[in-house]
């Protein structure tokens, strides 16, 4: 059987092509996302690691007790920072990083310091 001359085959092939054309005519799906729970994984940005360490130091200085609200805010800001950083939004991550630094400074300022030590 010569397929090329069989009208039935031609019709089927034409229908497949037609459906294929219909399928491929729509906009493709965007790429897969990331960063949704980035705080659960190790950071890849050393600057973020530094801020996290600084927050840990404040934790040891009882920031969770004596600057509770600011500490909670800082934790949330760090989570957001991590997610933005890994979620493909670097500009937003930079802004968030600046905010977090300022928040950590506030916590530093609020915490009691040993005598002779000056506020940062």
């Amino acid at each position: 059987m010569r397929i090329a001359h069989d009208p039935i085959v031609l019709v089927i092939v034409a229908g497949l092509f037609t459906s294929a054309c219909d399928t491929v005519s729509h906009v493709p799906w965007p790429p897969k996302g990331a960063g949704g729970m980035a705080e659960r994984r190790p950071s890849e940005d050393p600057r973020i690691d530094a801020l996290q360490r600084r927050l840990m130091v404040l934790t040891e200085r009882n920031a969770r007790t004596y600057a509770a609200a600011d500490y909670a805010d800082a934790e949330m800001m760090l989570i957001t920072l991590r997610r933005l950083s890994e979620g493909g939004l670097p500009e937003d991550a930079e802004i968030q990083m600046a905010r977090l630094k300022r928040k950590l400074d506030q916590i530093e300022h609020a915490l009691a310091r040993p005598k002779g030590e000056r506020a940062p």
């Binding site: 799906w29 965007p30 790429p31 897969k32 996302g33 990331a34 960063g35 949704g36 729970m37 980035a38 659960r40 994984r41 997610r83 933005l84 890994e86 979620g87 493909g88 939004l89 500009e91 937003d92 802004i95």
Partner: peptide, 26 residues
Amino acid sequence: GCCREQARVFDLVEFARTGDISVLPV
């Protein structure tokens, strides 16, 4: 975002099968 907009896809079925949180979009 502040400076750009982007779209990302999340496959909930695949996430349910693998538990890979790295695919969770921000």
